[in-house]
């Protein structure tokens, strides 16, 4: 029971961190909370389902193509909606909230109400610790999640683009003075945030089939993780994801499974009362 909860907690924690990474990135650079984050996740899930199942594409190719399409879609949304809201975080929150409802209802119309599940990458289960069997697809998703998180980390720390992003997130004006084109950068980073949602979507949809309204739960978890870890902090996002994953799964295993998500919220509220900027946050709020 303990080991199962621990394994579940770690695997789900990585998955949560992955789902939250895009939100964290966009908050850090643009100070915009993308309420529709979950809907980009769901869209990628639908894309990969239809590319793989309906069109018969190779699942890896289907995943890549889905993420690419959502990246472009995200950039279009930035130009149409988000660009006007810079400097007013509540305005962007309200706009993306409405956007999320619009997208949910569009998905319902286009994709229908039933859950869609892209193909599994791997079959079977592995015996963990000699105690219990754990689905291989879950382990593979966890591995893929770690790979994406590592890629994002390397991109932020090692590349020229990452340095530009970090400079902008620290001081927008100074970055602008140093020749960073923040308009293009905003578009790109919002798109990137959406692409990360999409990456989470294609990795997780074989485990959690996508539904038109499923994005809200994803976004909620992502928000909890990001606020807990501290808005815009990379490590905060990873640690926050692991904490929420562990707390929820231990809570579900030992207290009550129905209240799984409530434990995460309670931890969040407790942390916010002590550290209003989150665990790794230093932003003045």
């Amino acid at each position: 029971m303990f080991l199962l909860a621990l394994t579940n907690g770690l695997v789900i924690g990585i998955i949560y961190a992955l789902a939250a990474l895009g939100v964290s990135l966009v908050v850090g650079i643009m100070n915009v909370v993308n309420f529709a984050h979950g809907e980009f996740y769901i869209l990628a899930g639908y894309f990969s389902y239809h590319f793989a199942n309906t069109l018969g594409m190779n699942y890896l190719a289907a995943m890549m193509l889905s993420v690419g399409l959502v990246l472009i879609f995200g950039m279009i949304i930035e130009v149409l909606l988000i660009r006007k809201t810079y400097g007013d975080d509540l305005y962007s929150l309200i706009l993306t909230f409405i956007l999320s409802i619009v997208l949910q209802n569009t998905y319902l119309l286009v994709f229908g109400p039933y859950p869609n599940k892209p193909p599994n990458w791997v079959k079977g289960a592995t015996n963990v610790f000699g105690q219990f069997y754990y689905g291989n697809q879950r382990l593979a998703a966890c591995g893929a999640g770690l790979v994406v998180i590592a890629i994002v980390y390397l991109m932020l720390k090692k590349t020229w683009f990452g340095r530009m992003l970090r400079a902008t997130s620290q001081d927008r004006e100074v970055a602008e003075l140093n020749g960073v084109n923040t308009t293009a950068l905003n578009m790109l980073s919002f798109g990137l945030g959406c692409a990360l949602a999409a990456a989470a979507g294609v990795i997780l949809s074989p485990i959690f089939p996508v539904t038109p309204t499923g994005g809200m739960a994803v976004a909620l978890t992502a928000f909890v993780v990001v606020v807990l870890g501290g808005m815009g902090s990379f490590w905060g996002c990873v640690v926050g994801g692991l904490i929420i994953g562990l707390v929820e799964n231990f809570g579900a295993a030992f207290i009550s499974s129905g209240y799984r998500h409530v434990f995460g919220f309670i931890i969040l509220i407790f942390v916010l009362l002590v550290r209003p900027a989150g665990l790794f946050g230093n932003r003045e709020i």
Partner: peptide
């Protein structure tokens, strides 16, 4: 102690609870 987005997200959590 929270302003703006933090408050909104906390109320979202309350609603979900």
């Amino acid at each position: 102690k929270m302003g703006g987005i933090y408050l909104s997200l906390t109320t979202l959590g309350v609603s979900e609870i």
